[in-house]
Structures are given as C-alpha cells and as structure tokens.
Design a protein around this nucleic acid. Sequence first.
DNA 1: TATGAATGAGAATTCATTCAT
DNA 2: GATGAATGAATTCTCATTCAT
Lengths: 223, 223, 223, 223
Amino acid sequence: MDTQNLSGLDLPEKEHKILEAAIKVFSEKGFSAATTSEIAKNAGIAEGTIFRYFKTKKDILRGILVHTINIISGKLVLSSIEKILAASDGKDVRTILKEVLYDRLKLVDSVFPMARVILTESLFHDDVREAIYQNIISPAVEMFKVFLAKAIERGMIRDDIDPEIVLRSIMGNAAVFIAQRKLFSDKFLMEDMDKELDKLIDVIMYGIAVKNPDYIKSDKDLT
Amino acid sequence: MDTQNLSGLDLPEKEHKILEAAIKVFSEKGFSAATTSEIAKNAGIAEGTIFRYFKTKKDILRGILVHTINIISGKLVLSSIEKILAASDGKDVRTILKEVLYDRLKLVDSVFPMARVILTESLFHDDVREAIYQNIISPAVEMFKVFLAKAIERGMIRDDIDPEIVLRSIMGNAAVFIAQRKLFSDKFLMEDMDKELDKLIDVIMYGIAVKNPDYIKSDKDLT
Amino acid sequence: MDTQNLSGLDLPEKEHKILEAAIKVFSEKGFSAATTSEIAKNAGIAEGTIFRYFKTKKDILRGILVHTINIISGKLVLSSIEKILAASDGKDVRTILKEVLYDRLKLVDSVFPMARVILTESLFHDDVREAIYQNIISPAVEMFKVFLAKAIERGMIRDDIDPEIVLRSIMGNAAVFIAQRKLFSDKFLMEDMDKELDKLIDVIMYGIAVKNPDYIKSDKDLT
Amino acid sequence: MDTQNLSGLDLPEKEHKILEAAIKVFSEKGFSAATTSEIAKNAGIAEGTIFRYFKTKKDILRGILVHTINIISGKLVLSSIEKILAASDGKDVRTILKEVLYDRLKLVDSVFPMARVILTESLFHDDVREAIYQNIISPAVEMFKVFLAKAIERGMIRDDIDPEIVLRSIMGNAAVFIAQRKLFSDKFLMEDMDKELDKLIDVIMYGIAVKNPDYIKSDKDLT
DNA sequence: TATGAATGAGAATTCATTCAT
DNA sequence: GATGAATGAATTCTCATTCAT
C-alpha cells in the first residue's frame, strides 16, 4: 500500500505492516467495528504478534494518529508547502493557491484512509481531537497567517477580512471538494483535476456575487 | 432533550426515549462502541425493553436515520426554507443567504447529535450514505439550483459559474463554521452569531481577493 | 383442531384453547424451542393470559400430558378396546387384532401431535416417562395379558412365548408402521390402510420364516 | 466416554471433547434446553473455546449428526454387517439374524446417546430427517433387500411377503427391544442378552400364532 | 521472537413471568 | 378476568488479550 506512505519512517517492518493493515481495516469499518483478528490477517501475521508491538487495540489507533501527524505536519511533508510559499514571491495568489491546494490534495489523497480513521475517532475522543488541533490545525493556521500577512501586505488579498475567515473559506471549499471526490464520486462526475481546481480557486477568490463593482455598489438598492 | 427534536413525530413514548438515549450514546461513542445496556440506562428502562421497539441495535440506528431525515428534509422543516425563498423576491442575495444560513444553522444545532451519528456511519456504510444523498443532499441541491437560477437571472449572482460550485462554496464555508463552533468551540471563540454570519456571507459573496477591479485586471501581470 | 380431541373434557374454554395451541407449537418445535408468545398467538389470546391458567410453561406440558393420558387410557377411549375384546369371543385372532390395531391406529392418528410432544419430552424427563409408564404402558400391558391369556387358552396363540414378547412384536410392528406413515410419508407410499393392516398382521402372526413346516423342522439341520 | 465412540475419527482433541460433552448434554436435555455453558463445563474448557470449533450451537448438532452418520453408515461400521452377510452362505436365517442383530445392538449401545439426540431433532427438522433417511435408512434398506432376496431364493424366508414388511418387523421388534432396555430398564428386567435375542428372533421368524400348521389351515374356520 | 489456541469478560438478544391498568 | 408492556435473568456469541510452545 504505497498510498499509505508509512515508508521512510524507520519502523520495524512488522509494526509497519500492522499499521498499514490497521489503517485499511479501521478505514473500512471504523475503529470499534474492526477486529484485531482481521488486522492480523491483513498484515499477514499472527494475531498475538500485534500485541508485541501495541499493548492494546487503542494503541494501534494512537500509532496511526502519530504517524499521520508525522506525515502531515512533519518534515517529510511540510517542507513541500514551505517551499511553495518560499518560492511564492513573484507569483500571483491564484497560482500560489493552486500550487498549495494541488499539493495538499495530493497529500490528502495519500493519507485519506488514515485521515478518515482519525477524523472519525476525533469525533468521539477529546484526546485525539486535541492532538489533531495541536499538531495539524494550529501549526497550519499559524503558517497560513504568515503567508496571508505577506499576501495582504502586497495587496493581493483583501485586508478587510480576518485570516481565519480566509482560511475557513479555503478549507471549507477544499473539504467539500474532497468529500465529493472521495465519498460521492459516483454522484459528482468531475472534469479533470486542473479545471476543477481553477473553478475552486475562482470561487474562493472572487466569491459568488457578480463581479461587476457597479452592481456591488447598487446591490442594496435592487428590489 | 429538546435539542434532539424528536417531538412532534407521534412516536410511542418509550420509542421516543430510546431514540433520544441512543442519539446521545451513539453521538458520544459512535455506533459500534455504544452498548444497548448504556442506552437502556440512559433511557431509564430495562435493556430488554429496547428490543420490543427495535429488533436489533442496527435498527435503532436506522430509526435515528429515518427520523433525522424526516426532520431535515421533511415537511416539518423544508417549509421554512421554502418560505424564505418564496419571500425572497424583493431582497438582496446577502439578506436571503443570511436568512437561509441562519435557519439552517439553527436546524443543524438542533439535529447535531443525530447528524454526527449518521454522518459518521455514512463513512462506513454505502446504504446510509445513499440514504443521505437521496433524501437530503439531492433534494437540497435541486432546491438550491432553482433559487440560484432565479438569482442569476436577476443579475444577483455570477452567471459564469456552475451552480454546484456555488453550492459547494456555501456548504463548505458553513460546514467549517459549524465544525469550529461544535468541535473546537474552545479554540475559536466567536463573536455573536450575527456578526459571524455577516463575515461568512461576505467571503462567500466576494471571495478573498481584493475587491479592486483594477487589481483584478492587472493581477496576472504582476510578478 | 378436531384432531386434537380435547373436546369433551370439561375444561374452561381458554384453557382448552391454550392446550390446543401448545400441542401445535410444541409438536412443531419441541418444548424448549417453543415460546409462550407463539402459543398465545396461536390460541388467539394475550401472552399474560396463559399464566392465569398455567403457572409456568412446564405446567402447560404437564397439562398436555394429563390430557393425553386421559384420552388414551381414560374412559373416553379404553372403552372401545374393551368392547372389542369383550366381543372377541367368537372371532379369530387376526380379526380381533385387526380391529384392535385399527382402533389404536385411529387413536394414534388423533393424538399424534400430543403423543409426539410427550414422547419426546419423556426422553428427557424421568417424571414424564414414569407417568407414561404408569398410566399408559402398564395398564395396556396388563389388559393385553388378560386378552393373551384367553387367546392362548383357546389355542389361538402360541403358548410357548412370553406375553411381553408378543406385545413387543405387535407394538414394534405398529410403531414402525406409524413412523413410516407419519414421518416418512413421502418415502413409503402405502396402499390402502386395509391391505396394509393385513400385511402387518400377517407378519406378526406368522413371522417371516417360510411357513412350510417341513422346512421349519429341518431348519436347524441346515448349515 | 468410550461409549460415544468418536475415537478413530481423526478430530482435533478439543473438537472431540466438545462433541462428547455436547452429546452428553444434548442427550440429557435435548438440543434447545442444553446450554453452551454446560457443554463447556462438561468439556472442561472455556465457553468461548467452543466457538473456535463450531461457529454456532446449531453447528455442534450438525457435527454430531455427521459423526453419527459416519459411525453408523461409514466404513468403520458397515463393514462388519457386510462381513456377516458375506459369510452367511452356509448358515441358517436365525443364526445370521442373531449375528446381525447382535452386531447392530452393540452398535446402538455405543451410539445411543448420539442417536437419541439426532432422532429427537429429526422429529422437528426436515433436513435432519432427510439426512438420516439418505444416509442411514435408505442404504440399510437396500442392503437388507439384497440379503433378503438371497434368503428367499434359498427358501429360508417367505416369498409371499414384501421385503419392506420383513424389514419392518425386524426393526420394529428391535426398536422396542432397545427402548425397553434403554428407557425402561427398571421396568423390564431382562435375562441375559443371548436368551433375549433368541426370543426376539423366534417371534420375528415364526410369529405369534400357534405353530401347528393344522391350526393355521383351520384358523379361519374357527369361531 | 512469533505463534495461535485458549480465555473470559462483556455484548446483543430472547423469553418466561409479572403486574398495573 | 384479560391484557400486553415491561422486566431482567439467562443465553449465544464476539473478541481483545494472554501465554505456553
């Protein structure tokens, strides 16, 4: 399962296989409905072996959480977005945003099964939610604020709007975009990724209102 | 538990209590981790009594699904949004959007625990997902398209954009808004609802880019 | 259900209905697998009502036992066989046997469902077995011995054979005959009852050996 | 428990123990009234262990059925009766019958607990009954017919009688014989097996009528 | 170290029995 | 008397975890 991307994280091979299998099974059934027996079968090892590497089933979930956090926020990954932002100086916002979103969507694709697991469990466990906030959301928000500050400074982004709101718009649009592709792929047939991204960014950038500034001004007068 | 809003759906009182308790417990632990024993305790009845009303634990979940769908899409509820849209003729888009969003957010508040349960299960069961799509998403999308068509026709909304994209932007922004309030209420302290809604709508309407049309035109030239 | 023949035993109507229903259900599923709920449904009464007439489920079985015994060995029934035997003086054994067997087979037909229930349970409960022995088998054996003694006295039946053996032969043949008709009716298609009875009696009377007395005498010499 | 005779059927030791315990408990209480907890206790294992070997309680019954059929009809057993019949050429019918009955009664003794279980269940489940018919009764009948044909051909058995009737007489007498010994051992004290068998065969062979051929001829004339 | 059989606590479910109406 | 909803003890079955090999 290359997509799960546990490689490169110097883990014992067995532990690696267990995590991969657990991600698969948790992702398909959810944590509680998954059985250690099925995980073992998927990992190609004996059930007892799991408990040499993880004291309890819950610990497997924690292992997934830690590794997902490592992948998403760790050096392996953050670097790429930092590179994009670092190299952003001469580019317009749409281009940067597209690069960032493309990079993030690729990331989401690769960690989707794990993300599904930990997001689901985060709904039920404060500690998981806290870990996600501390390790993923909070740093991402901070990084984004820096970027936004720069973009605003250069007059590329509205300065009359909270960075949180901007981030929310981007994340919200991206989230539904991902949900459509991953959960309702049969309902929302999409064109190629490139065009879709352009549309996505367009609405994030310019909103849904008519662009004509005259209209904007006179909006309130209409009846 | 007024928030769960099962009232008004002429159910036997015990069935009502069981569903309420189940929503609470499923919502806190997820379906699989919840036990019928705990549901019974919460409902203040004997465990065996549950099975007089629901043949299996799975049937309780189905009961919740059915009732949530009834609440969200049923007459009880749809009427209000239809009223808003029907009365929308003389209003500007932001006002309508605000009314609709406010109405929907109140609805989400009231069904949040149930919604959490069925959304979570929808991740793992195609049939639940399909039910949600058929009964909630699809009709909502259809209704919205009608509204958008009218709005576009009157020049209130961009006509160079797919209705799906507009809807996605609105839903995405609203979704993250809800997640912030419900799951990370301690992290994102919000001002009063009214102001927050204004900000939300502002970014949906006008995007994050600078409004200045000059800039927009020259955007691509910058380096 | 006329076949169950509980009529004529001045029972309260409800008790009657319960017993009839219980015979049906026990007969189809066995005592343990049957539920009082199903019995109630079959009797067309509320489940709770059963317990006004029978303190426990086990008591229903006892009720069936008592009534079956009443039917089989009681006045209602014994009379007919006694009449046959009383009127037997001028008849040959085959005729008497045929009359008795025909009478008993008709009886078995009518009580088969109950008999099935109590015979089955007699396998597992000493008390039931004891009741069957005391109330049915033992009196039947005694009565038969009287008849046999008479028959032997008149030279109609071998006098070099224990009455128990004679009875066993008759009962054994009859039992398998009944099993074939009741349990394997699809496997053993039978001619009409009359002819079958003749064959049955023939083998009981004369055995399976060649009738030729010469052969019989020389039988032991063969090697 | 040598009597249950599961030995020689290369089963895992635990499975063997479970089946033995189940035969004991089912035999004492019947299938439905028996509990897996009691079976486990009898087998000296944990209750959960049962379900590693048998998916459901019903499967234990099937296991018993299969093994009983194997024992009764399988190579282990049929061989002995075939040997007897094969070696029957120079013997008289009574001798052969005695050997066969003795062999079968020993078999019944050894499988009695299992037989009781599956015969009881066969009363309530067509599939069990069908399995018994196909695997035990039908082959036994076929085999017997061959033997009878030979015996008739040699003038040892009446040729004016259906083979089914002969078989019925033998089985019926044997069945009641077994029932007496197994279920009413306290009521019917028996002499030694050998003498009992002689009596059994005598009545099967020559019937209950007076042997005197003169009488037989004149039977119908008597009044 | 790896195994996988065995465990037993705990889960869902059933059902005879009770009892307020 | 009759009802049938409610009960909760008992039952079948599951599965994370242990441990002898």
